[in-house]
Structures are given as structure tokens and as C-alpha cells.
Design a protein around this nucleic acid. Sequence first.
DNA 1: GTCTATAACCTGATAGAC
DNA 2: GTCTATCAGGTTATAGAC
Lengths: 211, 211
Amino acid sequence: MSTKDKILDAAERLFARDGFDGTSLRTITTEADVNLAAVNYHFKSKESLILELFARHLKPVAEQRKALLDEYLAGADDGPLELEPILTAFFRPVLQTGSRHLSENGMAVKCLMGRLYTSPQEFTSKLFDENFRETVKAFHSAIARAIPQLPAEVVMWRMHFMIGSMAHTLAAGTLLDLLSGGECDTQDMTQVERQLVAFAAAGLRAEVPKA
Amino acid sequence: MSTKDKILDAAERLFARDGFDGTSLRTITTEADVNLAAVNYHFKSKESLILELFARHLKPVAEQRKALLDEYLAGADDGPLELEPILTAFFRPVLQTGSRHLSENGMAVKCLMGRLYTSPQEFTSKLFDENFRETVKAFHSAIARAIPQLPAEVVMWRMHFMIGSMAHTLAAGTLLDLLSGGECDTQDMTQVERQLVAFAAAGLRAEVPKA
DNA sequence: GTCTATAACCTGATAGAC
DNA sequence: GTCTATCAGGTTATAGAC
């Protein structure tokens, strides 16, 4: 494995455990078993390292979401869309993040992806904007077609909530496993997806609350 | 205002904006317009400052949740419970956090409360455990009584999701306002509560997904 | 209780040899 | 590409005067 990848992999684990500010470049290079100066050679700064680390995962997720959504839309007939395939297209790619890489950093990567939404770092909001704004638009419009009677701003509220459910599940690691005494297995992504889709679909279909 | 409160108030704002590791005691004491050494006099360390900061808000929230829940349970008859009053008892206290204080740090406090669930700091998990475990138990049992046919572990999954929706809404600040072009007002806590209760109630009532 | 001064240490980044 | 050595600055925490 290249020095660059060794750094990225170690960084993923440590950032997930201790946060960005809580992890020094020294800790990363020690864990990766490379020299300190290698970070500034391969990446120009700590900030660039973080950006590249996320870019490695965010782009594939956005692409797969779009591909799955387009695939469903292409095969759908003229009536109202079904909600479940849309939600599956939204959740599945991010739930599988990190599972492609051999490095078995899957949990750490998911944790970082979940935490990204509410990260205090300003430069992460740029990432978010570039990789997520278009996705939100596309899914908003698909969901609106699946529940035509729902006002656009209520769709927005509920997408926000379902993104919260997803982000929390990604970021909270094994918290649920602990709370449930092991009955809920947050490592089993098939299970997570099934539970998440059922919850979000029902939430989206709720009666509009009267003001 | 006492030096101690000046420090706590400044810390809330800065921690919410830049995170715990991203905020130095120097920045806090400058913002609070007090001397650097005052932090170590009034609190013994940065960690203790953070713990005291959270304790100031977590305890009242836990107490109000319990009070609202008990009030509803006391007035309920023997049949299955209603879900909406239970969820309202869960969401309302945390949505009103910080509004009691004059200092108008409401948004910062809510942001911190939301971020607490997935904070990388290990000492915050102690806080969580002390102030939250009992609450989760009580609401789990109430929700199970409201939807008797739902398996206990599915109740757990869905509570996890609804806590995620709530935490994300608290922590993400005005993200939804931006995404919706101002149509969703995340500052209006009455509106947030209404939308959140409707979404979570429907999600909890979803059909159990077949394995 | 509040201040100054400072100890002891860690940080990101870089220059320059190999 | 990889190393050592180091710079300049920031960090928490504390000792001791007032």
C-alpha cells in the first residue's frame, strides 16, 4: 500500500475516534507508520488531507445515488412513483460506504460521513455543498412525485428528518446496540436499510399537521 | 453577571461554532472579557467546564421530560396510550432549551445538545449515560404501550431514528432554512415540534418490515 | 477573587540533506 | 520520495503577587 493510502486509512480511523481537531498529524503518521513530513508532501496541509479523505467517498455515493434513482425513474410508468425504491436509492449507497475498500475502515468512514452534516469545521460545508445540494434536489423532486398531495416545504422538513435518522445511525456507531442490549445490530447494513426505509417512508406519508 | 456565568455563556457560543477542541480557553476568556486564569479558578479544567456547561441544561431537560410524561400517564385511561402526547413530552423540553436563559444563547445550546449524541469526546458519553439512559427506558416503555403490537427491538430502532431526526434538527442550525430557501423556519420551535411529532409518530406506527 | 508571568508541552508546517 | 531537525506559535495549567 502506498504511503498516501496508509495516511488516508489511518486518518479515517483516528478522525472518527477523536475528531479532526482532536487528532494531530503526528498521531496519524505514527499510526500509519510513515514519516511526519510525508503528510505535507502528499497533501499540502491538514485541511487538504481532510478534504481529499472525504472526496474519496462522497463522489461515489453521490454517483450511485443518482444512478439508482435514474434507474428506477426510467423503469417507472406514468402514475405516482413508489416511495420505497426512492428511499432505498438514497440510503443504500451511503450505508455501503467503506465496504468496497479492503482496509476494513467501513465503520470509521460511515461515522465520519454521518458527522459531516453537523461538523463545526467551516471547510466541510463546502464539501457538503458541492456533493450534496444536487442530490437533495433530485430526491426532493422524486419524493414529491411519489406523494403529490404533500406541500413542498413539508417534503423538505421530512427529508431533513430522515437525513437526521440516517446521519445519526451512521455517526452513533454502536450506541443503539448498547441501548438495546444487543438486540439491534447496527453493523448489519441490510437490517439498517430495511428499518430505515420503513420508518422514513411512513414518516413521509404522515398526514400534514394542521397549523 | 458573575464571572462564572460570563465564562459559561461565552463557552456555549464558541463551542457551538468551533467545537470543543477548536475552541481554546484563551478565546473563551477574551470573548467573556475575563482573565484567563479565571477558568481554572472557577472550573478546575477545560473538561470540567464542558461537563458543568452541559449539566446546566441536561438535568432540567430530563426532569421536564419525566414530568410531562408522568403527567400524561397519570391522566390516561386503561386502553392503549396515545403516541402524540408521549412524543411531545420527549421533544418539547429539549426544543425549549436555552429559551429560559436571558442570554439568548438558545441556538448555540440546542446545537451543542444535538451534537452531544455523536461527540467524539469520551467524557461526554458519561454525561449521556447519566442523564439519558433512564429517559430512554421510560419513553421506550410508554411508546410500547401506545403501539402494543410492535416488537421491542423495533421500538428501539425507531426511537433511535427519531432521536436522530431531533438531534440533527438541533445540531444543523439553519441548514434546512438554506436548503428550503427560507420556507422552513427552524427557529420557530412550535413549528419544529409540530413537524417532528407528525413525522416520528407516523414512522413509529409503520408496518413492521418483513425480514 | 483576580491578576501577571511562566512552565511544560504540543501543534502544523517547512528547509534541506539524502 | 523520504528522512531529520527545527521554527514559530499555540495550548492547558499553575505559582505567586495583590
